[in-house]
């Protein structure tokens, strides 16, 4: 059974330092804020590397795949459920997300997933994942 609660997404506030992330999503790409000095990626994106505090950062394009680190099927009042999860999008970079177009009862930790995009109220792409 597919998740049967239709998710809607509010428009993100889009702080200045995260603009590149949202623009990439609208181009159908997942980018990971990555430090050019220490080499580590992080999430949510910041204006400085939270590992070495360098501001020499790039938006590194991902192939859009990841693995489920943990998940839950949240029941909705009045029936239905949706999946709230952590997906590992790069080494030790785990992002909160939803997994959509899936059977919540069949999901597994460690399962491969791929990026998908859902529009917010005003059409900004929101990053979600589906089983690969």
């Amino acid at each position: 059974m597919a998740e049967d609660h239709k998710m809607t997404y509010a428009d993100p506030w889009m702080l200045p330092e995260t603009k590149g992330f949202w623009e990439a999503l609208n181009d159908g790409k997942l980018v990971i804020r990555t430090c050019n000095d220490c080499g580590r990626g992080h999430h949510f994106p910041r204006a400085m590397c939270p590992h070495c505090y360098s501001s020499n950062l790039e938006w590194k394009e991902s192939d859009g795949t990841g693995t489920i680190y943990s998940f839950t099927a949240q029941q909705v009042k009045g029936g239905g459920k949706y999946v709230y999860a952590y997906v590992e999008i790069a080494d030790r970079v785990r992002a909160i997300t939803n997994i959509v177009d899936c059977d919540p009862d069949a999901l597994q930790i460690g399962q491969k997933v791929k990026a998908a995009f859902r529009p917010s109220a005003s059409g900004q792409n929101i990053l979600v994942f589906t089983p690969a």
Binding site: M7, Y9, A10, P12, W13, M14, L15, T18, H43, F44, T72, Q74, Y82, Y84, A95, I96, T97, N98, I126, V128
Partner: peptide, 13 residues
Amino acid sequence: QDFELTYHPTVPA
């Protein structure tokens, strides 16, 4: 905010 509350977290979740 955008990277968390966007995804409809609940306390139990």
